[in-house]
Design a protein around this nucleic acid. Structure first.
Lengths: 200, 200
DNA sequence: AGCTAAATATTATCTTGATCATATTTTGTC
DNA sequence: GACAAAATATGATCAAGATAATATTTAGCT
């Protein structure tokens, strides 16, 4: 033998990590294999030892991004803290302010996914559902009726808001995000009016 | 002279029309100049007589798409009919069912715009605002308080819904759209509860 | 130490698509 | 009906980028 299997897996992960970030930030077509491999500290030639092609990588990267979205991580550890609804909403909308490092695949890949094959769309859907479920779970615990519907509505708003905001010009983007955040939190509060409010 | 100026302008419009549709359906990178010119009934060589390059065309096409969005057309003629809120919502969400011919630039170009220069983003913003204003106008006439906020929220939902739906796999897409439509119409109704409802 | 196989790097190929240069057609004018 | 000017078409160039072939390095084994 030679390199340990662990090593290869680590390299693969490095590629996936780089790919997910780049794809999420720029989309499929605007990212080149050379860029990805460079970010993973290799040259492009090494690529085909790990994936069969760009499309195949994209598929894997989408799943990677999905299961590494911030709301998917630490699923059980931060139950009491990060799951606080407002924190989640704020964090989600904080794109462009402080969390460019973890772009959500939901809006960043939304256009790509629409043009891609079944597997990619499924990965997208899983990602979407995971956030909805996460939110719905919290809402249920707080006694919300129609937690599912409210959660789905909220996620649509979040995704739509961020996607649109990214296309706005600077001065207006920030106001738009603020208004949206307020609206979303308000909706959540009214959905919870029989229990404790979210805002505080 | 030779060709009438009108002719050239018509050709330019043909190119814009083709480009807007293709860009809206597939995005900037996935559309080739040859495709566009073919759709405009010419060969690719003729292109540079009308535009300085692909980017420049994109910019113009975005504005074209914006001012030709279905809600922007017939701004004053259909005041009584098409402006009916529910019809507008339904029509907007009907993408994928019966109106593939008029894809809305708002979700189809959202990812592109985010990566492009100021002018494109401005065009996007104008497009967005025009729909918000249109809705807000209707809501105001119906006596809604906070028409602006409700309109903006609604448009975010519409755009988010369609964008996400496009990335879903077939069986679930249609249910998702139905649920969203119901939620959106409900929100509009409650925003109007002091006047006539939208639905019935 | 030296061998082996896998991992990575280097370099080459091949396709696609934007752009450009040159030809041909078209239309209005005389 | 021929000419001029502009529009359109044809074919060439050029670059980018995905893929593939070949070379080199690395780590474990004996």
């Amino acid at each position: 033998m030679s390199y340990t299997a662990k090593h290869k897996e680590q390299t693969r992960q490095r590629i996936l990590h780089a790919a997910a970030k780049l794809f999420c930030s720029h989309g499929f077509d605007r990212v080149t294999l050379t860029q990805i491999m460079k970010k993973a500290n290799m040259t492009h030639g090494a690529f085909y030892a790990h994936f069969s092609g760009k499309s195949s990588l994209y598929e894997a990267a989408m799943q990677f991004a999905s299961s590494n979205a911030f709301w998917a991580r630490d699923d059980k550890q931060t139950e009491g803290k990060e799951t606080h609804i407002k924190a989640l909403v704020t964090r989600y909308l904080s794109w462009g302010r402080n969390d460019k490092e973890h772009p959500s695949p939901l809006e960043f890949l939304v256009t790509d996914a629409a043009h891609k094959e079944e597997k990619v769309r499924q990965a997208y859907q899983v990602c979407f559902d995971s956030l909805v479920d996460r939110l719905a779970g919290i809402l249920k615990k707080r006694g919300s009726q129609e937690a599912e519907a409210l959660a789905e509505e909220t996620v649509v708003s979040l995704v739509g808001t961020v996607a649109i905001a990214r296309s706005f010009t600077q001065p207006l983007q920030s106001d738009f995000l603020k208004r949206a955040q307020e609206r979303i939190v308000n909706r959540l509060n009214s959905g919870l009016k029989n229990s404790e409010p979210v805002e505080g």
